[in-house]
């Protein structure tokens, strides 16, 4: 176990150095991400300029909701984003290289890339957290802060878990990247806004099937003291557990896919 931690940092360090070879591209990506997220934030502001509230959420509350999603997505990009292109690795045969080495292939594949451009997400979301905390006068007790961290971890595990499941689809269907764009990209956009505004079946789906509601909506409702109609009060406290469970399921699906890959080789 300790060996794996050490190895992870070594592999990841290599990944970072590899990326820093393209410094200009690196900076441009960070700038690009911050621009894109600011764009969404500005859109929210314009939207609420006349209307003040969206499903009883005001502009700052929505920003807070958005920032939680972005922060956990940032970690997710770092750790798991490359999982979506497993299909390419399988098709051009480079995936086999992870199978001729004496370490866990899931771990090896995970440690292969480390996308530091996610700094854009961190800068953006931390700025928003500070701004919103001042505007809304959020009283950050130690417990609250700890809960925020725990639900960020939960959010990383949920979104990472979905990326892992999407990548595992490649073992069966030889497609994964496209599933990302059909399933996950729209789902992520959906959760930028409070779930309460959507039809019930969408809310239900994002709470119990693909638990994206636990990435930001439920935890943000707990921290901001908002109501979550149709759902038990404080359901957000479950976020870290949901994350762990979902990720474990995802991991086993991936391993199942791998054993299928080993018996079919396709």
């Amino acid at each position: 176990m300790l060996r794996y931690v050490e190895l992870y940092f070594k592999l990841v360090g290599a990944g970072i150095r590899a990326q820093l070879q393209y410094r200009f591209a690196f900076v441009m990506r960070i700038v690009g991400m911050i621009t894109a997220y600011s764009g969404t934030a500005i859109t929210m502001w314009v939207m609420l300029y006349q209307f003040q509230e969206l499903g009883s959420w005001n502009f700052y509350e929505m920003l807070f909701l958005f920032a939680i999603a972005i922060l956990s997505w940032g970690f997710c990009i770092i750790l798991f984003f490359h999982f979506r292109s497993l299909d390419t690795y399988i098709l051009n045969g480079t995936f086999d290289r992870f199978l001729v080495r004496p370490i866990n292939p899931f771990f090896h594949f995970m440690a292969m890339k480390f996308d530091v451009a996610a700094f854009g997400q961190f800068i953006f979301s931390i700025f928003i957290f500070i701004w919103v905390s001042i505007e809304l006068g959020i009283d950050w007790s130690f417990g609250k802060f700890l809960f925020l961290l725990a639900s960020i971890v939960g959010g990383v595990l949920i979104q990472g878990g979905l990326l892992v499941i999407i990548s595992a689809l490649a073992f069966w269907t030889t497609k994964s990247e496209q599933f990302y764009w059909v399933v996950m990209y729209p789902a992520r956009n959906l959760t930028n806004y409070p779930l309460v505004i959507y039809p019930k079946f969408v809310q239900w789906f994002t709470a119990f099937v693909i638990p994206f509601g636990f990435v930001n909506y439920f935890p943000a409702a707990v921290i901001l003291g908002k109501e979550t109609p149709f759902f038990p009060e404080n359901i957000g406290y479950l976020a870290p557990i949901v994350g762990i469970v979902f990720f474990v399921i995802a991991y086993y699906i991936w391993m199942l896919g791998l054993s299928r890959y080993k018996s079919t080789g396709s």
């Binding site: 190895l7 070594k10 290599a14 590899a18 990326q19 070879q21 045969g93 086999d96 080495r101 090896h108």
Partner: peptide, 25 residues
């Protein structure tokens, strides 16, 4: 595999050796 390298594409060659040293202990 002659057609595909097992080395880290973007890194100086020596780094691949160092990483493999770790992987294979």
């Amino acid at each position: 595999f002659g057609q595909r390298t097992q080395l880290w594409w973007d890194l100086p060659t020596i780094e691949s050796f160092e990483l493999l040293k770790e992987i294979y202990q």
